[in-house]
Design a protein around this nucleic acid. Structure first.
Lengths: 117, 117
DNA sequence: CTGTATCCTGTAGGATACTG
DNA sequence: CAGTATCCTACAGGATACAG
């Protein structure tokens, strides 16, 4: 990756490049929301659907599986009479909270600045 | 990307819900990268194209205009003989750095855990 | 309840060509 | 150099129906 073409900009740490990976974590449109709601504690599939009105079961499943595969979300099947599944954030997943919070913070500022609500 | 989230209903504080807004800031696929490269200092259009191999001029322009409109990026036209334009992060834009850094951090961890590069 | 399987659409983004 | 204008493709995501 070619950078450092200008004097007034120093070479950035290698962490800069893996933004592709970082975005693969929060890639989906609903992913940040999903993580956020999960941060409040374990949630069931149907609960998440209520939390995020507008999300389709397909996408919710997709995002859930995706995050699970990445070790961000933990899926626990409760052997109850009506099958229920609880999703929760893993230790690693919890580390995303500050990141999301930071983005939300700026996003909120932006909203106030432009007054577009 | 059709983010048409309207009203979030949960026990979570309202400040956290507007993830729609936060994602509208880092919405584009290249946006995080763009902000990151800008964080190192002012960059010209062509320099950014080199920084991010693969990005098309169209998208670069789009993202740049978008961020400019949001007050995250500052666009300065230098009245030089060959027209040159410098882009830089505003104060507000700089606040996104920690957020991006946090995501990168987790993304990097994820990469190491799964060993998939 | 918790998903999975299709079908379909909107739109972000790439390629290319052209302008000031 | 710094864009802009078109055209086109890929894929995320919605709707609906169906399954364990």
């Amino acid at each position: 990756m070619a950078l450092k073409i200008r004097k007034n900009q120093s070479k950035l740490p290698p962490e800069q490049c893996p933004l592709t990976e970082c975005m693969s974590v929060l890639g989906g449109a609903w992913t940040p929301n999903l993580i956020w709601y999960l941060s409040a504690g374990p949630r069931r599939f149907s609960e998440l659907r209520v939390d995020m009105p507008g999300i389709s079961a397909k996408i919710l499943t997709t995002r859930l599986r995706d995050l699970e595969a990445k070790g961000v979300v933990l899926r626990e099947v409760k052997p109850t009479s009506p099958p229920s599944v609880e999703y929760s954030l893993t230790e690693l997943g919890a580390e995303l909270i500050p990141a999301i919070a930071a983005i939300v913070k700026v996003g909120h500022k932006l909203k106030m600045l432009h007054g577009k609500d």
